[in-house]
Nucleic acid binder design. Structure first.
Lengths: 136, 136
DNA sequence: TGCATATATGAAGAGGCATTCAGATGAGCC
DNA sequence: GGCTCATCTGAATGCCTCTTCATATATGCA
């Protein structure tokens, strides 16, 4: 049932011992392609910064201009712009320009779902929470 | 309808111009509490590393020992152990010990949902995606 | 008891990332 | 045209993170 080391383990099984080679091969076969996995990790990375996460959560309800996003997120306007640039580069948000204003909106259904799921989860724990006092 | 600057904008409205104060206040009132938001960002951060993400995806199907996780993820066993330690510290995975082996499993329903959603999405786009070439 | 195996840990180095500051672009207004 | 306002950009800096190497713990086995 348990074999080891002398069976064909697809890729880089050079120096690594393996306990359950069959499981390993199975799990490996179900692993997403490298590129997709890296993309996914990048998306999570975009949501891993509190400032950017605030921006994205704010945008769930509709578009906002940069200065309002800065006000909501607590970031400086420069930091906000940098963050939005990053998010835009990854097609997570899109911009609409009107005069000198720039209105940003969520532009990625997948990210929206992740955000909804995450916020729903926090609201769960919020039910237990008695207060909603100060912001920062 | 659009007011500005001279209304009470809860917290840090010192130097930041605000275009639509009502929207800002509304969005702010719906923003998760700071602590929860930071927690959420941390969870995303844990999934933002390709190595850790591979570990977590591998664990979706059941428990695995450290060396098999290393084999699956392509990480060194040391790096794997470090990663698992991090994940364990955040209660995302849990360990079961049997002899000198340590078997890890997913231990966070929320993370599992996020993973499922993410993997489902990659499997979707795998069929469709024509492009996604240049990022920045 | 002593050795090999499986995992855990600490320290350190390299790289990446977020913020800030200063300045640039570009639209609206007089 | 010249000024102001909203946003964008680049460079610099300090922090944080991931990996590796070396070593520690601890279990199983002879």
């Amino acid at each position: 049932m348990k074999r080891h080391s002398d069976e064909p383990i697809s890729a880089d099984a050079c120096s690594v011992r393996v306990v359950d080679g069959d499981r390993v091969d199975l799990v490996r076969s179900r692993m997403p392609l490298e590129d997709e996995l890296v993309d996914t990790a990048e998306v999570f990375g975009l949501m891993a910064d509190p400032g950017r996460l605030r921006l994205l959560i704010a945008l769930r309800e509709g578009e906002l201009c940069v200065c309002d996003l800065a006000a909501v997120s607590g970031l400086s306007e420069s930091a906000t712009s940098h963050a939005l640039r990053l998010l835009r580069a990854h097609r997570v948000v899109a911009a609409r320009r009107s005069g000198r204003m720039a209105y940003y909106r969520l532009d990625d259904a997948h990210v929206r779902m992740l955000l909804d799921l995450a916020v729903a989860h926090t609201e769960h724990t919020e039910a237990i929470h008695p207060e909603r006092t100060g912001d920062r």
